[in-house]
Every structure is written in C-alpha cells, then in structure tokens.
C-alpha cells in the first residue's frame, strides 16, 4: 500500500499532539524549580519526595485496593453473566432484556451514573451506614460499570468457541463439573484475563465516578491530582503522573501481548 507522504506527516503530527502533554509533564517532573515552567536543572528529588508523602502513598494504596477489589468482584460476576447470556436458551424477550442490562452501563454517560449513585447512596444511607461515602461505595460504583466490560470481553470469547468442544467433552464422558473445570474455564481464561485487565485499567482510570462517590478517607490518585490541580500543581504531582503514565504503558503492552497470542 502506497500512501501520500502528507498522510504520514499528518499521522505523526497527530501522534505527537497526543504525546505532547505527557512529554511536558515528564520533563517538568525532573525540573529543579518548584514554581513556574522555566527549566532550571535536572533532579530526581520529586520522585524521592513522592515516596515520603503520606497523602500520596495513602491515595496510591486506595487506588490499587479499589481497583483490585472491584476487578475481583466484577470479573466473577461478569464472567458468570457472559456464560448465562451465551450458554442458556433464554426466551427471546428475556434475552433482549438481558442484553439491555448488559449495555446499560456501557452507554450511560459516567456523570449521570455518578449522580444517580449519589442520589441512591443518599437513600441507602437511611438504611445502613455502610453507604457513607468511602471505599465501599466506590467499589460498588466501579464494579457496576466493570461488569459490563468483563461480560462483553468474555462473551466474545465464548462466541468464538462454538459448541463442538462442549459436545466433544460430553462425548468423552465428562460430567458437567469436569467439563467446566477442564474445558470451559481453561478455554475462557484468555478472555477472563483480558476482561479483568480491562476492568482494572478502567478502575485506575476512572475519575468521575470516584469523584462523586468518594469519602474523606478514600482519596485516590486521580482525585488527588485533580485536587492539587485546583490548588496549584507541584512537581511532585508531575512525578506521580509520569509514574502513572509508565504504569499504563506497561499494562497496555502486557495486555497486547496477552490478547495477541
């Protein structure tokens, strides 16, 4: 395929445009001066301080705890949901209803979902203090949108499997339990892992839902960055952002490797 060189130039420029903000942040994270944007020498200082800042460490802990717990729950529920959707002969109408339930979290704008949770948790609080804003309410929120993404990923894997292998397993004397353990789950594993990674990244990435459901003790990294942007950013935040970016690069490359296998 031959391309007009202009297309290549535009493409590279567009990519540069996408990376420019990250590059700026990365450069500034090594800048000696605390104020302003002028370069005044290279330093690792800000990275060092990052790891002695209790607020940031606490936020990092919350972020990963939130992502890990919600991903765990969402992966189990989403996988079961995908199997239920794809492997059970629901009547046409129920199937349609279930499909809508599946797509609902995907198509609802996150801000609407977030304020709906604010309203609902407000009401639930009258029943139980569990629903005070905090890590628990955030997990509830995150799982809700993660389920759909896990289920969609696992379902596309299930679709590609067909029913030959199920029949072969049965023909070869497998009981239902044996078939699930030795055939279905191993075959679904790539889809489940891909879905879980997607869910994990979505959770790390989320700002809006966390913003509306977080409590005073459950600050996450995106919330912390947002708050410090309002107060005025420090080079520590640049360093933190750079690290998060590097983590993203690793996650993307790892998931590419997993799914392209």
């Amino acid at each position: 395929m031959r391309l007009n060189p202009l297309i290549g130039i535009t493409a590279i420029a567009t990519l540069a445009f996408l990376y420019l903000p990250m590059l700026a942040v990365a450069v500034l994270s090594f800048n000696k001066t605390r104020y302003g944007l002028t370069w005044s020498g290279f330093t690792w200082d800000w990275y060092g301080r990052l790891f002695s800042n209790p607020e940031i460490l606490e936020a990092a802990r919350n972020t990963f705890l939130l992502a890990a717990l919600s991903t765990l729950v969402a992966t189990v529920l989403g996988t079961l949901f995908a199997i239920a959707l794809e492997r059970y002969p629901w009547p046409r109408k129920s199937q349609g209803f279930l499909e809508n339930i599946l797509y609902l979290p995907v198509v609802t704008p996150d801000i609407i979902f977030a304020v709906a949770l604010v309203v609902a948790f407000g009401a639930f609080r009258m029943v139980s203090s569990l629903f005070e804003p905090g890590l628990f309410t955030m997990i509830l929120g995150h799982v809700t949108f993660q389920i759909a993404f896990v289920a969609l990923t696992v379902r596309s894997r299930l679709k590609s499997l067909g029913h030959d292998l199920d029949e072969a397993a049965r023909d070869l004397y497998a009981s239902y339990g044996y078939y699930v353990r030795r055939v279905l789950l191993p075959l679904l594993m790539p889809g489940i892992v891909a879905g879980a990674m997607l869910a994990f990244t979505l959770s790390l990435d989320d700002f809006v839902i966390s913003f509306f459901t977080a409590g005073p003790t459950s600050q996450t990294l995106p919330l912390l960055i947002y708050a410090s942007v309002r107060r005025g950013v420090t080079p520590e935040i640049h360093a933190l952002s750079t690290l998060i970016f590097l983590l993203t690069v690793l996650l993307v490359l790892a998931s590419e490797r997993l799914t392209r296998r």
């Binding site: 030959d164 292998l165 029949e167 072969a168 397993a169 049965r170 023909d171 070869l172 004397y173 497998a174 009981s175 055939v183 075959l187």
Partner: peptide
C-alpha cells in the same frame, strides 16, 4: 446422556481441545 453412552464420536471439525 452422551457422557454415559459407550459410544464415541470423531467430529467433522475434530473438536480437539
């Protein structure tokens, strides 16, 4: 059920795991 019949099948697609 299929898993309790003393009968085995070679599938058209082979259906190897």
């Amino acid at each position: 059920p299929a898993n309790r019949r003393p009968v085995n099948t070679v599938f058209q697609s082979y259906a190897l795991f």
